[in-house]
Structures are given as structure tokens and as C-alpha cells.
Design a protein around this nucleic acid. Structure first.
Length: 435
RNA sequence: GGCCCUAUCGUCUAUCGGCUAGGACAUCGCCUUUUCAAGGCGGUAAGCAGGGUUCGACUCCCUGUAGGGUCACCA
């Protein structure tokens, strides 16, 4: 592999980083790292009206959070002088000209700079799509600058890629149609042509391109950050949209991705972003975490005052951190005072009647009253023989229901330990007296 | 509409002419189990259509169809 690969991720600071952008950034990053090359981040802020510093900051912050560290940083607006010089050169050499325009819309200029289109066929060699031939005649003399000092995207991209020595342009497929005009500009300024790789689009459920207008915030990385997904999991999941190494492996650390990544294995067709798989992937990562790491990572999602005894259960059941609140209000709400429940709920489905249920509860109360060590192991040890002889559901269901007041909850032994002897016996007695 | 790209289970995909079409998510069933989750086992589920090429096409070619992208003084 070549030793001097330089890739770039070039977002415009006009909005949040969306999932498709994350994938583009990741692939550019992976390809650079894989080839021991350089990964550059370039902020494309030539649109002064729509570009905002806040978006730039957010972009940098998001990428850093993901762990996609760039080696080079360029702000396009800092290159204004260089752009201007090229525009002049292009005009002087006859490749571009100042064009008088008829103003039909507000904000339009009566004078812009257009590229003199040589009207030829361009053959793009794309790493993913092979050869694509386009006749540029259809493009006409397109605009390359609003004025001598204001280049338009296509011009700025070509100049910057050239100046930065970009060897591989890895970007989304939506840019494939733009490539011919960029190639024309390259030829005019005498820049070498980089190697192109146009990634298939990341699609929404309805198979259309992800967009804020149409699909709302759920396409933004921020949305998933706020929901408490892990950056490693997002990267892992996104890597597998439109690419896979050809093996059955599903979970990859970033280092592993770098090792096995291969642009030629990238898919050609667009792929739908599937949240269920993201959830599953994220859960895999949570399972691999130590309890300490889980608690530390999830600290912003765990309400103050939550009993540390619940932490293992939270880790076991949450597939993303935002699940924690739901869990605490639902399945794990037994730590709060119990709401009233119908006494029939205490009866196991295979149990004869409430009388028997009451008897089982009494036995449980008697056994636990004498118990000193209230660890779940210890509680289980004294009750298990009884449960086995009387029927596990017959004994354990009423006990669990009495302790949790719910159809779904952790096992009664864990609840006992968390509640402690006093509260456990209080709830059991309450249930017993109810019957 | 012009130009361009694409087309395997619901979804993400493997297959680079030999396929009883494999895996993962989701889904369903069973086991485990006091419930839920997790886990284990198993099931349902796919080659857009029509022509070629070939001994043999999911794989190659053509046409059609469908979907997407792009046609800005946005990137």
C-alpha cells in the first residue's frame, strides 16, 4: 500500500453532523489509518450566510467524541487569498470569465464568474463504482465564484484538495454527479486527479436520503449521543452500513476496523439505517463493560439517589443509557413504595387458590425472619428447597409479586437483598395479610 | 424530465459461473426459568422481470421495471 495517503472529511458548518456524515468521516479515517496516511478535517464554510461557528464547534466536538482524530485541520475561509489567486489565474488563462447576469431572484448578483466549459466527455474512475462516463456539455458554463473573492463549493473543493495534497476523495454518492465539473476545474488549474470513492447513501426508513427537513433530529449524531449510545457502538454499527469484511464478525473495536477495512468491499447500493441493530450493537458493548465503567459512563443518566445496588440490574437490562430512567420507573421501581395491587395478582397461574398462596407466603416469612445474612445467595439457599418441593412458581411468584408489585421484575432473591430484611418482611407480611 | 448510480430474506449483508443461496438484526417457536431480560436450540423469510451468453447463471451482457442521487450565485 502507498505510504502517502491523505484523506479528508469536509463537512460544511451549516447544521449538525448526521449519521451519513459519521459514516463518511469514519471511512475516510479508516482508509487513512489503514494506509498509515493522514486524515484531514476541512470545514467548508464558503457559504458565509449559512455557516456558523457553533456548527463548526459542534462538528469538531462530535468527531472528537467518536474518537475520529484528525491529523490536519483546515478552515476553508482561511484560504481566501489562495482561492482568490486561483480565480484570477483562471480568468487570466481564459478558463473562466466574468459574466453579466440577469437578476431574477433576490440576492442574486448581476455579475458572477463562470467556468468556460470545454464540453467534453469525462471518465471518472471510482474505487467503488468503476468507470463512470459523463458528458459535461450538459453542465454549461457553470458558476465557480460569486465574485473574485468568493469561490463557490466546486472551486474551493478542487483548490483545497490540490493544496492539501489529498490523494483519496472519499465522500457520499450524492457528490458523484458533481465530480465531472470538479475534474474540469482540476484540469484547468493543472491539479492531479485524486482517486475517488463514492460511498452509497445512508437511507432513512423510506429509502430517501437522510435529511433534517424530512426526517428531523433522529438523523443527527447528537440525538444518539443524548440517548446515551456509546461512541464505539455507533462507529461499529455505522461501519457495517454499506460495508462488511466478508466474515461473520459483527463486533469490531476501532483498531480492528482499521485492520480489516477495505474500500473495495464497500457496497454500491444505498442502505437503510436500522435502529434495532444499533440497539443490539450498543447492548453488546454495555455487556462487555465492567460495572464501574458502566456507572461512570452512564452517570448523567442515573438519577441522584439511585441505590448502587440497582447498578448491576441497570447494566444488565439497558441497551442504551436512556433506558435507565424507564427501567427505574418500570421494572426496577420496586425500590419505591409499592402501589396498591389486587390480591389475586399474588396467585401463581398454576396455583389452586389464594389460601395455598397465603400458606406459601407464611412459610417464606417464617424462614426469612430467622435469616441473618440477607444476601441474595443466602435468601435463595433457605427458600430454594421449599420452592422445589412445593412448586417453584407457587412459592416464588407470590413472593416476587409481593416484593415488586409487578408482573415483571428481577428475581425475588435479588429484590430481597436490595430491599433488606425489614422492608422485605414488611412487604411479605402486607401481602400475607391481604389474603 | 435530462444525466448518473443502484437492485439477494422486513433490515444490514455473504456469494467474485457450480447454491441444498450462508450470517447478523428483527420476528416466531422450543428449552432454561417464579416473571422479565439474558442465554441455548430451532423455524419462517430473498436472488425485480424478460431476453441472451454458457454444459451450467444470483453471479456476465442487453432491455424493461423499480428505487435513489443530481441538475443552485448550498455544500
Amino acid at each position: 500500500m502507498s505510504n502517502n495517503v491523505i484523506t479528508r472529511f469536509a463537512p460544511s458548518p451549516t447544521g449538525f453532523l448526521h449519521i451519513g456524515g459519521v459514516r463518511t468521516a469514519l471511512f475516510s479515517f479508516l482508509f487513512a489509518r489503514k494506509n498509515k496516511g493522514v486524515f484531514a478535517l476541512r470545514i467548508e464554510d464558503t457559504d458565509k450566510v449559512r455557516s456558523k461557528n457553533e456548527w463548526t464547534d459542534a462538528l469538531i466536538n462530535d468527531l472528537e467524541w467518536l474518537g475520529l482524530k484528525h491529523d490536519v485541520f483546515v478552515r476553508q475561509s482561511d484560504k481566501a487569498d489562495i482561492h482568490k489567486a486561483y480565480i484570477k489565474k483562471l480568468i487570466d488563462s481564459g478558463h473562466a470569465y466574468v459574466s453579466k447576469e440577469k437578476v431574477v431572484e433576490e440576492g442574486q448578483r448581476d455579475e458572477v464568474i463562470r467556468f468556460k466549459n470545454p464540453n467534453k466527455k469525462v471518465v471518472i474512475t471510482d474505487l467503488i463504482r468503476g468507470e463512470v462516463t459523463v458528458d459535461t456539455t450538459d453542465l454549461g458554463d457553470f458558476v465557480i465564484a460569486r465574485s473574485i473573492g468568493e469561490p463557490v463549493y466546486h472551486l474551493a473543493v478542487v483548490i483545497d484538495d490540490f493544496e492539501m495534497g489529498i490523494t483519496h476523495v472519499i465522500r457520499a454518492e450524492e457528490h458523484l454527479s458533481n465530480t465531472p465539473r470538479q475534474i474540469l476545474i482540476q484540469e484547468a488549474i493543472g491539479a492531479p486527479r485524486p482517486i475517488y470513492a463514492h460511498l452509497p447513501l445512508v437511507l432513512a426508513e423510506d429509502r430517501s436520503k437522510l435529511s433534517k427537513r424530512k426526517h428531523g433530529e433522529t438523523v443527527s449524531l447528537t440525538y444518539y449521543r443524548n440517548k446515551g449510545y456509546l461512541p464505539e457502538a455507533i462507529l461499529n454499527f455505522v461501519a457495517l452500513i454499506g460495508w462488511n469484511p466478508g466474515t461473520d464478525q459483527e463486533i469490531f473495536a476501532l483498531d480492528e476496523l482499521i485492520e480489516v477495512f477495505d474500500l473495495s468491499k464497500v457496497q454500491k447500493g444505498g442502505a437503510i439505517f436500522n435502529v434495532q441493530k444499533l440497539d443490539w450493537t450498543n447492548k453488546q458493548y454495555i455487556e462487555k463493560m465492567s460495572l464501574e465503567n458502566f456507572v461512570a459512563a452512564a452517570k448523567d443518566f442515573i438519577p441522584a439517589g439511585t441505590s448502587p445496588k440497582l447498578f448491576p440490574l441497570l447494566k444488565e437490562k439497558a441497551s442504551k443509557f436512556s433506558d435507565i430512567v424507564e427501567l427505574l420507573e418500570g421494572e426496577l421501581s420496586f425500590v419505591n413504595p409499592l402501589a396498591a395491587y389486587p390480591k389475586e395478582s399474588l396467585k401463581w397461574k398454576q396455583e389452586k387458590d389464594l389460601e395455598t398462596t397465603k400458606r406459601h407466603l407464611k412459610t417464606v416469612i417464617e424462614k426469612l425472619s430467622q435469616l441473618e445474612d440477607f444476601s441474595k445467595e443466602s435468601v435463595k439457599a433457605v427458600l430454594w428447597p421449599i420452592a422445589e418441593s412445593a412448586g417453584k412458581g407457587n412459592v416464588l411468584w407470590p413472593m416476587r409479586y409481593a416484593l415488586s408489585g409487578r408482573e415483571k421484575s428481577p428475581d425475588p432473591f435479588s429484590i430481597s437483598e436490595i430491599l433488606g430484611k425489614e422492608e422485605t418482611l414488611k412487604r411479605l407480611t402486607f401481602a400475607h395479610d391481604l389474603l
